[in-house]
Design a protein around this nucleic acid. Structure first.
Lengths: 300, 300
DNA sequence: ATAATGTCTTTTATCGTGAAAAAACATTTT
DNA sequence: AAAATGTTTTTTCACGATAAAAGACATTAT
């Protein structure tokens, strides 16, 4: 097996959703932009849609014949990229019990366990190494540094430094900057979520990420912007693993965000700093409190 | 061809230098630690030393027969790892004229040009991407962001943030910490270099890196420590490319380091901050002044 | 003339393979 | 019995090959 066609399958599934909305599909290049794939892939998708009787396809004419049925979709698990599959497997192991700091990571074993080639695992580990959780020994294996209390503290230290600076830069942005409109939209979303928090609390983490990324972008510094990937990754897996008091946590966080937004809009540096600090402090607390004591041991 | 034996060749060359110093070599495990390679490689080295009449080898007995001659050494270019070879080629291209921001990077072309497999190039690019100079388009090519003025400014912004914090942490370290002895040693090296600056100015960059790494380590934060890799990489290639006023620049920098060291030893936070700022400011100036105007264009 | 479609070429993503190097295990020496 | 040497197994590193996907070029339709 060389390369899976998950790009095609995923785009096909997304393409199916377009059929509900229109009588006939747009041009191939337009579909390509819409789905984020090349024309080659668009044409494969159209071919299959024709074969399965979803559309008729004759040159520019792509008429929708029927709405897609559940069985038209490719199974979800076939639409994931290899990188995603490896990341998930790896994180599951990492967050599972028994992943102690200092433990060594075996590429071959990982590859066999997940059922992929070693090359993909190697590439994943290299990419993953920037998160600071693993480290390579020269000419040798990788070492797990562990999801420890020390890690969380180091991560949050940088986060706080970067976010305070970004927030200050944000508040200093001119009136005519487009970010203020973005901020307004986010504020509305926050208010909506706040009013329905009882049922929608699990939608918070996605909103959280968008909000913080908007702020970090104001730094106009690629290293700050990129660092948010580390934070997002940690929070993503971390909260998947630790659901304790999720609702209450998110409820508090939404309110803190609203105060933070208000501070930004006031453009008062002192207020911004205070609101930002307050939110970051509770974010740190949440992260720290969820690290089991057994993991808080430092690597030898 | 699968894997080159550069680890063996490099360790062999380093092993030859040991022959000058002793009548007989230590045990295999000891040699392994000394050369930073496994026993397997040590044994290959000993085999060759025996074959070429450098030593006699019988179990524990490894007697030196003669001093190594120049022709005993493997050629330097055969001792580089693939990663180093690729990095050098890539940086040469990057710093050469015509490497404009926005340009796309072709893995296959790079691999062919350097004469290596695509896997190695891919892995290099992934590792290299954390330096913020290139970016990957999903399912597609890499894009060169370019060594621009913006890049230099973003880099130095983070550097200054991190170093000021590390320097403050350093000054607050307890008297009994081992770093003070390290600092003393570095101070001596600086004074020696200062007194012979006319002839040894090109030795500064190595000393510079050791000095700043020592300070960054005081932060006890892996993200700060790791970020110095970005700075070191940039400075390394950058100064290789731009030799203008190297001597004068280094002379100034040595003096700034000495003032910085004195400030650290005073443990006065105000003095530390001032000395650190002063040095970082001139480091930034040096970097910025060497970026040609043609490169200062922002990517589209 | 512009923008689409049709066709062909190039590049990327992934695997299996094999040599280099590390690591583990067994045996001998001090 | 501790540490070395001898031997075997496992893992890492790098390659070429191949299907998926992107991209380029040629042709046709509005």
């Amino acid at each position: 097996m060389s390369k899976s066609n998950n790009v095609y399958k995923d785009a096909f599934n997304r393409g199916l959703r377009l059929l509900d909305e229109t009588r006939s599909l747009p041009s191939e290049p337009e579909l390509g932009t819409l789905l984020g794939v090349s024309r080659t892939t668009v044409r494969s998708i159209l071919s299959r849609m024709e074969e399965t009787g979803l559309i008729t396809w004759n040159k520019r004419n792509k008429t929708v014949l029927r709405a897609p049925k559940p069985e038209d979709f490719f199974p979800e698990e076939e639409t994931d990229s290899l990188a995603e599959i490896i990341e998930r497997s790896f994180m599951r192991r990492l967050l599972a019990e028994g992943a102690e700091a200092g433990m060594q990571i075996n590429e071959l074993e990982l590859a066999r366990e997940i059922g992929v080639g070693t090359t993909s695992v190697r590439e994943f580990l290299i990419r993953f190494s920037r998160f600071g959780l693993i480290e390579k020994r020269r000419n040798s294996h990788w070492v797990l540094k562990g999801f420890t209390r020390a890690f969380a503290l180091e991560l949050t230290e940088i986060r706080e430094m970067f976010e305070l600076r970004s927030a200050a830069a944000f508040a200093a942005l001119p009136e005519e900057s487009a970010v203020w409109a973005d901020l307004d939209r986010l504020e509305v979303e926050h208010r909506q979520l706040a009013s329905e928090i009882a049922t929608r609390f699990n939608e918070f983490s996605e909103l959280d990420e968008r909000f913080h990324r908007l702020i970090h972008r104001a730094s106009h510094n690629r290293f700050i912007v990129d660092f948010y990937d580390v934070i997002a990754m940690i929070f993503h897996y971390h909260y998947q693993w630790n659901k304790a008091q999720e609702r209450q946590r998110n409820e508090v966080a939404v309110q803190e965000h609203l105060a933070y937004i208000a501070a930004l809009k006031s453009r008062d540096p002192g207020k911004v700093d205070a609101a930002c600090r307050k939110h970051l402090k509770s974010a740190r607390q949440t992260l720290l409190s969820s690290i089991p004591e057994g993991r808080s041991v430092q690597p030898a």
